Simulated assay, not measured.
Amino acid sequence: MKFDNPEDIVQITPLWKGERFPNGRPKVPEDVLRRIRKITLEEAWGPLWNRGYQFQFEGDFKIIHPDKIMVGRAVTAVMVPKRPDLHETLLQYGHEQEGRKGFFNQWVIDSLEEDDVVVVDMFDKVHLGTYVGGNLSTAISTRTKRGGAVIWGGIRDNQQVVEIDNINVFYRGSDPTAIADVTMVGMNVPTRIGRAVCLPGDVVLGTPAGVIFIPPHIAELAAEQAEKSQVRDIFGFVRLKEGTYSTAQIDSPWNSTLKGDFINWFQNDPAAADYRHLNWEKEIAEARKHDGDGPQSSVRL
């Protein structure tokens, strides 16, 4: 077996048609990551759930910075309890055949790029299962700039890690012991985090409610649908405060008058300026098909 094997990574991510890292990992554009930083977990969850991706969220974590959002591209690892023959074989192979240094967790962190997030299945081990401490968290900070880690296991040196402002860490528990009696059996492979599945290159969105793993080929769509929901809500809040429409009108499918009001507001109001990259042609075309059917059958923009 090989660690971080490009052929394997490309094989398990065939729906991604964009740029890839040299190891084959999908490289979702920085602009999409920027847009996802502004959306909520529920807004990202909807497009995934509706497309059959129903095991992408896990919320049972402790969080180093509970008030900070974390977004980045997943670098995954799978750890198992130590079995001596397997352990020595894989450790030796990594050192001698792939030129890797140190222990398994250091191999992963040494591979990180800007905007990466380490995603590790540590089989919920905390005692002797501390994947990072102060030193490795500092290395994650230096390499990723604004990424972090999602660890289904433990960390140590919490008082040091909490002082690192530019990353976040989601973890199951803390313990003063160092990592021991574990073996890495996969790097940039499918990884289970609690109830969720993460693949290399997934966009990791970490929030106070938990973590969602967004498949790279859906990431831009998720950002777009979330932004459209946000700007519709901004418009709705404005018109409700003005008393222009009732809540029933805002929450129901929009008729032609309301749709036209929204488009005029969207094109001219400063509150919509950050959303003007969005295109509404598809929604308008769909709405026009139903205008003759009455307001309740109109398609909401």
Rank of each mutant, 00 (worst) to 15 (best):
P208W: 09
K228G: 04
F213I: 03
A223S: 11
D202A: 02
D233L: 00
D202T: 07
Q230R: 04
F213H: 11
G210P: 09
S229D: 06
P216T: 12
P216L: 08
I234L: 15
E227K: 05
A219N: 09
G201W: 01
V203P: 07
I234M: 08
F213Y: 08
P215C: 06
P216M: 04
A222P: 01
Q225L: 09
I212N: 12
S229E: 05
E227L: 14
P208G: 07
I234A: 02
I234R: 12
V203A: 02
E227G: 00
P208H: 09
P208S: 15
V203C: 04
A209G: 11
I214P: 07
T207G: 02
V204K: 04
G210L: 05
I214E: 10
V231T: 03
L221I: 15
P208D: 13
K228A: 05
R232S: 15
S229I: 01
A226F: 04
T207W: 02
R232G: 13
A209N: 14
P215F: 01
L221C: 01
P215V: 12
A226T: 01
A226Q: 08
K228F: 02
Q225P: 03
H217S: 11
V211H: 15
D202V: 01
R232K: 14
T207L: 07
G206N: 09
V204D: 06
I218P: 08
Q230K: 06
I234H: 04
A222E: 05
K228Q: 07
P208F: 00
I234W: 05
I214N: 12
D202G: 06
A223C: 12
V211I: 14
E224D: 13
L205I: 09
I214Q: 12
G206R: 14
L205S: 04
P208R: 13
D233I: 03
V231L: 01
G201K: 02
T207H: 05
V231H: 02
G210E: 13
A219I: 08
E227M: 08
Q230M: 12
A209S: 15
T207E: 05
A223M: 13
K228C: 03
S229W: 01
H217G: 07
H217A: 12
A219V: 03
V231Q: 01
R232W: 03
D202I: 06
R232H: 07
H217Y: 13
E220V: 01
D233E: 14
G206D: 14
I214R: 06
I234S: 04
L221N: 12
A223T: 11
P216D: 13
I218G: 11
